[in-house]
């Protein structure tokens, strides 16, 4: 059984975003998820930042303060090798969940 929940899904979205974009700050992650999902998914800041910090504590991502193009200080996140492995696992697990849910929905 695929182990998954909403929090896991957010983690997956963040990890995938960082995997595709390399280095991003929190706001950038929100924007990317929003645009990549054609405005279907909107990440709440109230959930994103706790998730980012938790993932950092777990060693999946690392952070660094740096300047934006508009010369503003922002905290940038990037994947660690451990985070990359976690992304693969989460992706696999999510695929299973989707396949499972689809199968059930089609069954009717």
């Amino acid at each position: 059984m695929a182990k998954n929940d909403l929090q896991g899904t957010l983690d997956l979205l963040v990890l995938k975003t960082l995997d595709q974009n390399g280095v991003l700050h929190g706001y950038g992650i929100v924007l990317h998820i929003q645009s990549a999902s054609n405005d279907l998914l909107r990440v709440e800041e109230g959930s994103l930042y706790p998730a980012l910090h938790r993932m950092e504590q777990s060693g999946w991502i690392s952070s660094e303060w740096s300047m934006t193009e508009t010369n503003r200080r922002a905290k940038y996140y990037k994947l660690t090798p451990q985070g990359r492995r976690q992304l693969e696992a989460a992706q696999e697990s999510f695929d299973q969940l989707v396949r499972g849910v689809r199968a059930v929905l089609r069954f009717a």
Partner: peptide, 9 residues
Amino acid sequence: DELQSHIDL
């Protein structure tokens, strides 16, 4: 600081 920078952005 991080949350403030998010709002500022």
